[in-house]
Design a protein around this nucleic acid. Sequence first.
DNA 1: GCGATAATCTCGCTCAACGAGATATTAGAG
DNA 2: CTCTAATATCTCGTTGAGCGAGATTATCGC
Lengths: 163, 163
Amino acid sequence: MPDNHEPAEPGPLDREPDNLQLVHLLRAVTVDFGLRQAEFAARNGMHPTDVRALICLLDADRAAEPATAGLLGARLGLNSAGTTAVIDRLERLGHVARIRDDQDRRRILLRVEPGAIRLGREFFGPLIDGVLKVLDSFAPAERHTVRRFLTATHAVFASGPRP
Amino acid sequence: MPDNHEPAEPGPLDREPDNLQLVHLLRAVTVDFGLRQAEFAARNGMHPTDVRALICLLDADRAAEPATAGLLGARLGLNSAGTTAVIDRLERLGHVARIRDDQDRRRILLRVEPGAIRLGREFFGPLIDGVLKVLDSFAPAERHTVRRFLTATHAVFASGPRP
DNA sequence: GCGATAATCTCGCTCAACGAGATATTAGAG
DNA sequence: CTCTAATATCTCGTTGAGCGAGATTATCGC
């Protein structure tokens, strides 16, 4: 975030303006994504946190992880009270179901209901299709380049500094 | 977001699993970014909205737009009361200054203070440098591919459906 | 100048998220 | 095998971000 409104002082990050523009472009995409999430939330009587929770649960599902309340709270950065509140809201809307884990009966497993999945598909499906169409127009080598970029960027942002 | 835990039923979006994985990767990057923003906020006694506000103001600065309170509220999706509250918080922390516009004395122009810029650079600088390093390792043609992808994706996500 | 419009602020309220602590279940030491 | 520590979730009371409604101040067309 350089303050380049003073044309006489190039900041230390302005050395590669072309690459820096790509960074800003990436950030713009993340902002867009957040706005779409918020829009989906508002349109379905939810809060952004609730949408993030659903996404988190579907991710856990996809990764075959146990989708417990504790994991959800940790991923969302909420404390236990807030986590209970999120699950309460989603349960009240019929989007998730609480299921006692029979292996460890302290735990609550969360199942995303089909209705919520359908809702998400309706809203995000066209957007996902749009990106897939973009990717279809790319050559296999280009897709590989995109993958390398996203993987490396993910690695840069995923390394947490201080817990 | 397919529910592919039922191996017998491939959803309509699972036709290009390789490209779909790229979509999930992109989303993961956006999630990472959001987490870093929240982390920066918490570490500096701010809220995620305040950080988004600062980023918005710096973007406006970069684009040579007038950074008014109204514009800020519109970009953040806040009403006037919430916008005033955000600016109050940022002003109290000394991160922005309110400046009456002499051309239109109803308006408040917002200036991001150098201290806030320094704070942002300290935190996000290494992350940005990390992405720039990734880009430096790419050939010019590859960087162009990444740019094409990000630009097209931005276009997909930026088109707002219903205002 | 004067009503209409625009930009920002004030007041009161709601509810998401927090801290502290309660409850229930499991694991481990003796 | 019991008793204690650790773990997972929930309950209660509180704080504060953001909203709706309306006040305030400044601009513009007539």
